[in-house]
Design a protein around this nucleic acid. Structure first.
Lengths: 228, 228
DNA sequence: GCTAAGCCTCTTGCATACAACCTGATGGGC
DNA sequence: GCCCATCAGGTTGTATGCAAGAGGCTTAGC
């Protein structure tokens, strides 16, 4: 169940701020609320959902600050992974190449679900090749958060560019040029982050709030708690 | 409750393999099993405990393989954090110095609980200075796992050495020599990992298993599932 | 027309009850 | 004496029930 929901998020089928009602999910999965709650607890521990007391469970809506932190974390971890990688075997290169092909296919055909899944999975693949389960899990959660961030702040898709970046990274790995691969990875993540509009509003309310704050003057104070 | 249990682990008051009975914990915390289970679910998602079907919850006993992975993850993340750090302000240096003093005090007085807590927290402090909550959480979980690992595989305490290493790292940070700090951090983590006896058995059974496997011959096959 | 108070519904928070199962003990058969 | 089947105790797995609270709607007051 956890993975079903997580996959749905990574595939952009569930967006940030989506309400996940216990009863509805229980019916959907054909189980009782108890098990749904357990799933939600686990997902909450992983930073995927959060609970609003007696209101419901919601997919997290990362703030601009959290978005920056997530990208910083990914940058640190993924560059570290590439640096820690030994020269790849032929099998491993072949696996990555196959993945890149699938990515390219999904991107070309405009299959958004498969596309974001595969683009995200690419990064997990590297952790898998390193064989570090701790890092794999961290990266999977960070990927989910990154997808949510892009749904909030990314004005336009950059799937093609990402796929190209991935190709460049794999090429460097194939040359066993780990330093270049690490540099390309850092640039790739920076590029994705730069492609976001982190000045944008995370939800419609924020722009409203902003406009109202802009015209705030002493004669027309905002209601208490409005900007909180 | 989650934090209470986690703290107890980090302070070495609960060891690897400890059974955490739902009923007992429920009485201890004065709540029903439901809430205990929720806590366990969250801790399980963080890789701190695991459930053995209808037998109970147990604090994880990282295998040698998992131990290596945990240290690799820490190395990658913590070196990355130091590299990402901006030159530290006076306040931040003062904070770290105060922390080092507390560490030294605990180590000298032989206060194991406070000692491991503080030695572990040092690393979290750096993540806090970087201000990245994702990394802070990851590091906290990794620290807990590392403590468990050292309880399984560390023949002798190296608290004094660790404290000295921390001093050296802070000195480098004070000089704003981030590269040196990163190098020292890598060496520090490697040293701690090297101080482990990763050839040792994680539990008494393993040595037994090993001895038995050693003398296995076709005439005296081991019972089915014995080495599984 | 507008505000505000009170109610009503919906949802989670938490506890409890029962079912399923694992483990260790006991007793019968060989 | 040894082994295996059976049973009892204890523990988790899952569902359900009730209470508390948040939000929205209605309605009375101005």
């Amino acid at each position: 169940m956890d993975e079903t929901i997580l996959s749905a998020i990574i595939a952009r089928r569930i967006g940030p701020g989506t309400r996940l009602g216990e009863v509805k999910l229980a019916e959907l999965f054909g189980v009782s609320r108890t098990r749904i709650r357990e799933t939600m607890m686990r997902l909450a521990a992983r930073g995927i959902v959060q609970v609003s007391a007696r209101r419901g469970w919601y997919v997290v809506e990362p703030s601009v600050e959290e978005a920056r932190e997530a990208f910083q974390a990914r940058r640190i971890i993924e560059v570290g992974i590439v640096q820690a990688l030994h020269p790849l075997s032929g099998t491993e290169i072949a696996l990555l190449r196959a993945h890149l092909a699938a990515e390219g296919e999904a991107v070309r055909t405009g299959d958004v679900c498969a596309g974001t899944c595969l683009l995200g999975d690419f990064h997990t693949r590297l952790a898998e090749i390193l064989g570090n389960r701790s890092l794999i899990e961290m990266l999977r959660d960070l990927t989910a958060r990154t997808v949510l961030i892009s749904m909030l702040y990314q004005p336009n898709e950059r799937a093609i560019e990402s796929n190209a970046d991935h190709h460049a990274i794999v090429a460097a790995l194939e040359r066993a040029d780990m330093d270049a691969a690490a540099r390309l990875m850092a640039e790739h993540i920076d590029k994705v982050e730069a492609g976001l509009d982190l000045a944008a509003k995370p939800d419609p309310l924020d722009s409203l709030r902003e406009s109202l704050n802009a015209q705030t003057d002493p004669r027309h104070p905002l209601p208490k708690g409005f900007a909180a």
